[in-house]
Structures are given as C-alpha cells and as structure tokens.
C-alpha cells in the first residue's frame, strides 16, 4: 500500500448482488427409442448358426474327402499293382523261351544259311538253302534255357499244351539220367562227308 494510494469511498464499487434465479424446468421427456426389429436378431443369430453349420459341414466334407482320397489312393495303388502284374505277364510270354516253346510245338526248325533278295535288281545274294530238321547240332527242347516264370504257362500255338513245368532246370541233362545214345546222324566222331 503506497501513500499515494487513493482511498476510495467504501462501497463505491460494491458489487450489486444479482439474484435473478434461473428458471426451473421439468426434465424434458426422452423421445422413446424405436422397438428393436426382430429381423436383425434373426439375421444375427441365423448368421451365427449358419456359420456353425457351414463350419460343421465343411469339416465333415473335408474329412469325408480325406477318406475318399485315401480310398482312391488305395485304389490307385491296387490298380498300379494290377498293371504291373499284367505287364510282367506280358514280359514273361515275350521271353524267347516262350516263343521257342510255341515254335517247337508247331514243329518249326531253325533256318539255315541266310540269303538275301536284293530289291534293286532282284538278285539273290548268298547261297539259299532249305532249313532242315536234322542239324549237326540237334536242337534240344526250349526248356534247356530255363525260365521258371513261364513254367506251366499254356502254349498259344497248340491248344491244351503248356510249357513243361518240370524242365526249368539249369540247362543240362540230369547227370544221374542215362546218357543219350550216340546219334549216328549227328554224332559220329569223324569228319562227315555230304
């Protein structure tokens, strides 16, 4: 407080009490919210249900698919085995032993000296000769070269006949068996004259 301070008359600026009271009003009425629509609930619940059902179905379908795949894979394996079995059979009957057995059953013999017919001028090249039953090396049965896979397989050329199932040995005569008689036709121990 300085000495120069002006002393103002008391009450010069006394506040004037303003006591105008606020108007009291009643709580305004809340506008009533609309009733929730049933459809929304149905959609929501239905949606959830649908999801659950879909999930279930999907899962069932998927696991069903797994079984189906498994079954089909099994079938594929089996068919693979079948195919292999069939192609093995084919290979076996394509073996030279089987073809030879069929040829021998028909009485076929091995060809002799080869000769060629030249197409350009029709000339015969080489010395043709007929195949003979009697050859210097008597051709033995086709079972001399063994193939146990075709033992007993029926021949295609002679109905009722089959590859000898017992002659699947090692390709030589049984040492205990009596030796074959000397063939004068093929086996004289001296140079032959024709």
């Amino acid at each position: 407080m300085s000495a120069t301070a002006v002393r103002l008359p008391h009450g010069a600026f006394a506040p004037t009490p303003q006591t105008t009271p606020r108007p009291v009003r009643a709580v305004p009425a809340v506008s009533p919210s609309p009733r929730p629509k049933l459809a929304y609930a149905v959609v929501a619940i239905g949606g959830v249900l649908a999801m659950v059902v879909a999930q279930l179905l999907l899962s069932v379908g998927l696991s069903q698919g797994a079984y189906e795949i498994s079954a089909l894979q099994q079938q594929q394996t089996t068919l693979g085995w079948q195919q292999q079995s069939a192609s093995d059979d084919l290979l076996e009957v394509s073996s030279p032993q089987y073809i030879a057995a069929n040829a021998q059953a028909l009485g076929m013999v091995i060809n002799g000296t080869p000769a060629y017919l030249r197409l350009s001028d029709g000339a015969v090249v080489g010395v043709p000769a007929a195949a003979a039953t009697e050859t210097e090396v008597p051709v033995g049965p086709s079972t001399l070269v063994g193939n146990s896979l075709i033992a007993g397989v029926p021949l295609v050329t002679v109905p009722g006949a089959s590859v000898d199932p017992n002659a699947t040995g090692t390709g030589v005569a049984d040492p205990a068996a009596p030796v074959a008689p000397v063939s004068l036709e093929n086996g004289i121990p001296a140079p032959q004259t024709r």
Partner: peptide, 13 residues
C-alpha cells in the same frame, strides 16, 4: 538266348 539254346543242345547231345 539263341546261343544258350545252341550250346545247351550240344552239351546235351
């Protein structure tokens, strides 16, 4: 095969 058949035939004969 043929040669086996051949030699086996002669071995036998």
């Amino acid at each position: 095969w043929y040669l086996q058949q051949l030699v086996a035939s002669q071995v036998l004969a």
